[in-house]
């Protein structure tokens, strides 16, 4: 874009009044872990569904000393991650990084970094549909009552159906969790592989849904339990092979289609994790390839 976009706009795009309003919502969300706090979401210069909630949360908490990392699908160089990172570079001038350990704020869509987060870090999730009961009950008035009365039996009906039909719980992402033993929460469409990372994380986790105008939070060291049955316990997605590039196992992998004859390769979804490992000398089966 040719125009000097940042001039004429406040630090981090939003005006200070709006940021204070959003910070109040964030504080309330932290005080009631897992509860969806309505907030007056603003129009943002990117479309709804592309991270407007996460961007508003980040814009409200970011300061000049922060170091920002933005990932989408675990990767720093996917189009949307690049776009949002550039947005903050332009509107705040803060330092950005791809290294998970160096970031103070990590905005993410669909993944939690593989490297454990630490105290003082904030993970900001972009959330499309914040209501975990939405696809069982479309009406907001009814779902709010269900949360108020802690009526979560319906969610288990869904899991029961999965087992009855497929032999196990067939929810592989957006897998519902109970937060601090009280609120049923949607972890955003992260693969369920990442659910255990939310449990008692040292980092503050903030969730922003712009179109649906909701903010919710998991304070550090909060219990986050994935729903399940005693005889069908929660399990994370597993992969048969390690990362073809860095040899990591126990990480989430992307499937890359190599040709139309079915050849495929599995590589780390968290690109920073993969690059760090390779820099440390780890190699996978296809270690010299560049994806």
């Amino acid at each position: 874009m040719n125009a000097p976009a940042a001039s004429g706009y406040n630090f981090a795009y939003l005006d200070e009044q709006t940021k204070r309003m959003i910070r109040r919502a964030i504080l309330k969300a932290i005080a009631i872990p897992g509860y969806q706090v309505p907030f007056a979401s603003r129009e943002m210069p990117m479309p709804y569904g592309w991270g407007t909630g996460g961007v508003q949360v980040t814009a409200s908490i970011i300061g000049e000393d922060d170091v920002l990392k933005v990932i989408d699908q675990g990767s720093d160089d996917t189009t949307n991650a690049v776009s949002i990172r550039k947005f903050f570079e332009k509107t705040t001038g803060v330092a950005t990084t791809t290294a998970t350990g160096e970031a103070t704020i990590i905005q993410t869509r669909h993944r939690i970094p593989e490297a454990p987060l630490t105290e003082g870090q904030v993970l900001v999730y972009q959330v499309p549909i914040p209501e975990p009961l939405r696809f069982l009950e479309p009406r907001e008035t009814e779902t709010r009552t269900m949360h108020a009365l802690e009526e979560y039996g319906l969610m288990h009906v869904k899991l029961y159906e999965d087992i009855a039909r497929h032999g196990h719980i067939a929810t592989s992402y957006d897998y519902p969790v109970m937060v601090a033993g009280r609120y049923l929460m949607d972890p955003s469409p992260t693969p369920k592989f990442d659910n255990p990372k939310m449990h008692r994380s040292a980092a503050l986790q903030l969730f922003g849904a712009g179109r649906e105008k909701r903010i919710y939070a998991i304070p550090p060291y909060t219990d986050v339990v994935s729903l399940d049955f005693e005889d069908h316990p929660f399990e994370v997605n597993r992969f048969d092979t390690p990362c073809a590039l860095c040899g990591a196992s126990g990480v989430y992998l992307d499937e890359v289609v190599l040709d139309d004859r079915g050849r495929r390769m599995f590589v780390c979804s968290d690109t920073d994790h993969c690059e760090t490992r390779r820099a440390d000398g780890h190699r996978g089966a296809d270690g010299d390839a560049t994806p």
């Binding site: 874009m1 943002m44 990117m46 189009t79 499937e255 289609v257 190599l258 139309d260």
Partner: peptide, 21 residues
């Protein structure tokens, strides 16, 4: 898919622009 035969071709699109006049 992150990558696939024929690749991801971004082409002319508004998708990754910031909506600033």
């Amino acid at each position: 898919y992150k990558d696939l035969p024929g690749g991801q071709v971004l082409g002319p699109t508004f998708d990754y622009t910031h909506r600033l006049i």
